[in-house]
């Protein structure tokens, strides 16, 4: 018991100064900006009582909205992982005229008001739009369906994947690829067995960010989704609808369940990351 090494300490000794100040500031800041507003959601939802809350959450329209929200977000995040990694690959590996322009364009979804993006996408993918008119004869409807939601979410999530994968890809040693080549691996084997596995942590992070962003997205989606209840109505929109009906409790119930689901999904991604890190370690 008295063995010094077994004594639990709140803080490991360190030569770096300012631990108390930095931690205090972090907690105060996080509380003001994130924790207190979000706990408001919990408090409001609690006012419903467990049965009231459960009734709200299991309401069919709510369930459908949640399914649409998380389903489309997952699909969009998967698509972004594939295409975002590809975009990062092109930007990192090749030198061509206009590379910097493309590099800059990747960030545009960050800067553009998402409503603008939604209107633009809706105009293009509507049955009489540029691309929509090409797809319509094939019987494919994009705008005003869940497919349209996915398109909008891909748009807003793309930079997250590109910007997390790109720097890691830049740091891949040429040596490692050359080593694989001298061992007889062809290009395809080198990419699938060497490069992609070493990008896994970055891709996972990008996936998590793109997914989180998509779940919370509102502006761009409502213009392209058509917002048909039970079909293409997303949970954030349902929250707004409940608010407009002055059903504050209902709105917070949906918000609370979204928070819980999102938290656990992001937590799971972080666990996978930590496991990954323990296995392969950082540095050389």
């Amino acid at each position: 018991m008295s063995n010094a090494s077994t004594v639990w300490r709140f803080r490991q000794p360190s030569v770096l100064p300012g631990f108390g100040l930095a931690l205090g500031f972090t907690i105060a800041y996080l509380s003001l900006i994130v924790l207190i507003p979000l706990s408001g959601v919990g408090v409001r939802a609690a006012a419903l009582g467990w049965d009231g809350f459960w009734a709200m959450v299991t309401d069919e329209r709510t369930v459908k909205a949640l399914q649409v929200s998380f389903g489309t977000s997952l699909i969009a995040a998967f698509v972004n992982v594939v295409f975002g990694t590809l975009v990062a690959w092109v930007l990192v590996r090749y030198r061509f005229p206009g590379r910097r322009l493309i590099d800059a364009a990747v960030d545009l979804p960050f800067a553009l008001p998402t409503a603008v993006a939604g209107i633009a996408l809706a105009a293009i993918y509507a049955p009489n739009g540029w691309i929509g008119s090409l797809l319509a004869p094939l019987g494919i409807k994009v705008a005003f369906t869940p497919v349209g939601i996915v398109v909008a979410l891909i748009f807003v999530g793309l930079p997250f994947v590109v910007r997390t994968v790109q720097p890691v890809m830049e740091e891949i040693d040429r040596d490692v690829e050359e080593a694989a080549a001298t061992l007889g691996a062809n290009r395809f084997q080198t990419i699938t067995r060497i490069i992609l596995p070493s990008l896994t942590p970055a891709i996972l992070t990008g996936f998590g960010l793109a997914f989180a962003r998509a779940v919370g997205e509102y502006g761009s989606v409502i213009f392209i989704a058509g917002n048909i209840p039970y079909v293409s109505e997303i949970a954030p929109l349902l929250i707004v609808i409940r608010l407009e009906e002055f059903d504050y409790a209902g709105a917070t119930a949906i918000a609370a369940i979204m928070l819980v689901i999102s938290f656990f999904m992001l937590f799971a991604i972080n666990l996978v990351q930590a496991w990954n890190r323990r296995r392969y370690g950082y540095g050389s």
């Binding site: 040693d173 040596d175 490692v176 050359e178 694989a180 061992l183 691996a185 392969y280």
Partner: peptide
């Protein structure tokens, strides 16, 4: 067989997998 100054081992593979890589591909 090529040996690099900075080892160039595959970080996500165990030692045995590293050594076996050339045969596996």
């Amino acid at each position: 067989g090529f040996v690099f100054q900075q080892y160039a081992l595959f970080r996500h593979m165990t030692v045995a997998e590293n050594i076996g890589f050339g045969l596996k591909v």
